[in-house]
Design a protein around this nucleic acid. Structure first.
Length: 229
DNA sequence: CCCTGATTCGC
DNA sequence: GCGAATCAGG
């Protein structure tokens, strides 16, 4: 098997949306988990919560005269930052016509003029909702993921629906249902220009920020919160 | 044991 | 560039 552009694209999207290397390998078929990881690294995409991210020290005064087999063996106790489960937002890369693609961006990216970071400046998005400024961005109340991303595999249940692999910059990435469920898919409507979601779901994802004093205590949506649908 | 991603290194 | 082998943490 060779890495065609299409396969690379699939790999990239799945990798960036949090699929494990095993799952990606299985999806692509005829390829090993290692191949996926190797390719992912070669592509330069690897910002991923690794289960083994301990070693950060490169310099070690210890003499390593051996030609090889020099194992650092540095059990430096490091505080482990808990890796938050990645949001389901798959920043799809469609080659060519993605005008607004400036890399892995957050949904606050403005299509036209970047709003200068000013405390009380507030702009109104194309959908008519009030934008949040950078910094006050609570993660979109994505009711999505953390359990386990399983499918992405063509199934009868999602026939005609927008699957993970169908995501691009033009369709709404709002998840419908939950990963792992047979009919898990995405909204797929035309996006509110400049946003990852359609107008309706932008209304869910971006809420007008009330003055702090009027702010209700944050609704504890532990996880697997309100179903969208 | 299982899983994960990271890294190495012969090809 | 590729990916099996290996490593290492959970």
């Amino acid at each position: 098997m060779s890495w065609t552009e299409e396969r690379i694209d699939t790999l990239t999207r799945m990798w960036e949306s949090g699929m494990t290397a095993s799952q990606i390998a299985e999806e692509l078929g005829g390829i090993s988990r290692n191949a996926v990881i190797g390719k992912a690294h070669r592509l330069g995409l690897k910002p991923r919560p690794s289960p083994v991210k301990a070693n950060a020290d490169a310099e070690k005064p210890a003499p390593a005269p051996a030609v090889e087999a020099a194992k650092p063996a540095a059990p430096a106790p490091k505080p482990q930052a808990p890796a938050a489960p990645p949001p389901i937002a798959a920043e799809a890369d469609d080659d060519g016509d993605d005008v607004f693609d400036d890399g892995p961006s957050i949904p606050t990216a403005m299509p036209t003029a970047p709003a200068p970071r000013q405390p009380e400046l507030r702009s109104v998005g194309p959908g008519g909702f009030v934008r949040q400024n950078p910094g006050e961005q609570a993660p979109p109340s994505t009711p999505a993921p953390p359990r386990r991303l399983v499918p992405a595999r063509p199934s009868e249940a999602i026939a005609g629906k927008t699957s993970l692999l169908d995501l691009n910059d033009r369709v709404c990435k709002w998840p419908i249902g939950h990963p792992g469920e047979p009919d898990f898919h995405f909204c797929g409507d035309k996006v509110n220009p400049g946003f990852p979601y359609c107008v309706e779901h932008c209304g869910h994802a971006y809420q007008a920020q009330l003055p702090r004093r009027d702010r209700r205590p944050p609704p504890p949506l532990p996880y697997g919160g309100p179903r969208v649908r």
